[in-house]
Simulated scan of single mutants.
Amino acid sequence: MTAIDDLFQLCPPPAGTVPADWAAVERTLGMPLPRDYKQLADAYGPGAFCGFLSFYHPLAPTEWVDLTGPMPSRIRQQLQQDRDGGTFPVPHDPQSLFPMGVTGNGNYLFWITEPPTAPDRWHVAVNEARGPRWYTHEGSITDLLLAVLSGRESVPLFPRDLLDQGVYFAPSEPNPPEPPRVTRPTGAMSSNEIRTWARAHGYDVPDRGRIPATIIDAWRNAGNR
């Protein structure tokens, strides 16, 4: 069996998913995509593995987790700024990194798009949320998912108890509700409100601890203050 078959057996995909128009998606992105990712996205649809690991999807319910939305470009710009300004080391050329997933801790997953015309040979990198640590998996996103969900591979940036509740996939809500806005003094920020907004817009955000800067930026860009 292939890695995708093994993944389906380990974590059965939900029923009733809608396939994407991959020719249109690739035209929009201006690049080809890995075959395994397209199979993965068509089988599972938008959502999260173990309530933690999500991949960007062209049919995502919000632009914040849309493969063709604004987030991949914004994240790559931030990486370039980090590299140029020496804020954090970036072990790969930011222009060769394409953001394609996010975790509940705010870590981002990237394709290392080398060579650009051979997507089935791309490897996967994981970056610590606004931090210096990186992890590289010498294989596809399906290989990484299978290795992590089966317990064969441990990613240091992922929580140790990731598999404690079992292996499962939870589809995204098709139409997440717009969270209520709360009036507060200018300049003050409510962590609870930001978390509520982020989850309603497709982000996986931890219940405690630091909220990733990218989520705060998105919250502000949506007109919140």
Rank of each mutant, 00 (worst) to 15 (best):
H201S: 02
V205P: 00
P94E: 08
A147V: 06
R76Y: 03
T142A: 01
T186V: 13
N105H: 15
P156K: 05
A48Q: 09
T117S: 15
P115R: 08
E193D: 12
V182S: 11
L157D: 03
E178K: 12
R121D: 14
L10V: 02
A60R: 04
A43P: 10
G202A: 06
R121M: 12
P115V: 05
E193V: 11
E128A: 09
M100P: 04
A125V: 01
C11A: 05
L144Q: 07
P32S: 09
H201F: 03
P174H: 07
S190M: 05
P115S: 05
A48L: 02
E128L: 03
G85R: 10
E178F: 07
Q77M: 14
I141L: 14
M189C: 12
H137F: 12
D6E: 15
L53F: 00
R76L: 02
Y203F: 15
E26I: 06
T117G: 14
L67Q: 09
P14N: 05
L29G: 07
I141P: 10
P99D: 11
R184M: 14
D204M: 12
P89V: 15
S140V: 00
Q95Y: 10
W122R: 03
P179I: 04
S154K: 13
N175M: 12
G187Y: 12
R27K: 15
R83E: 11
G202C: 04
G106V: 00
P159L: 03
M71C: 03
R27Q: 13
L53T: 06
E193R: 08
V124F: 00
Y44E: 02
T183L: 13
S150L: 04
P91H: 02
F52W: 11
Q39K: 11
P61G: 01
G45I: 04
D6Y: 02
Q39P: 04
P185L: 11
V18K: 10
D93L: 05
R133A: 13
W122P: 04
E178T: 15
V182G: 08
P119Y: 01
Q77T: 15
L109G: 07
Q80E: 13
A129S: 11
P99N: 10
R130M: 14
A188K: 15
A200H: 10
H201E: 07
P177W: 02
P94I: 11
W22P: 07
P206E: 06
A218L: 07
A200F: 00
E138L: 12
S191P: 13
P72L: 08
Y108C: 09
N127A: 15
N105K: 12
E173A: 15
S96Q: 10
T186Q: 15
G101A: 06
C11M: 05
A170F: 11
R152D: 08
L40H: 01
D204H: 15
R160V: 14
Y44C: 04
L157H: 00
S73E: 14
S54H: 06
A218T: 08
I211K: 01
F98Y: 05
H137A: 07
H137P: 09
Q77H: 11
L97I: 08
E114R: 14
A43V: 00
N224R: 12
M71S: 10
R133S: 12
N221H: 13
G45F: 04
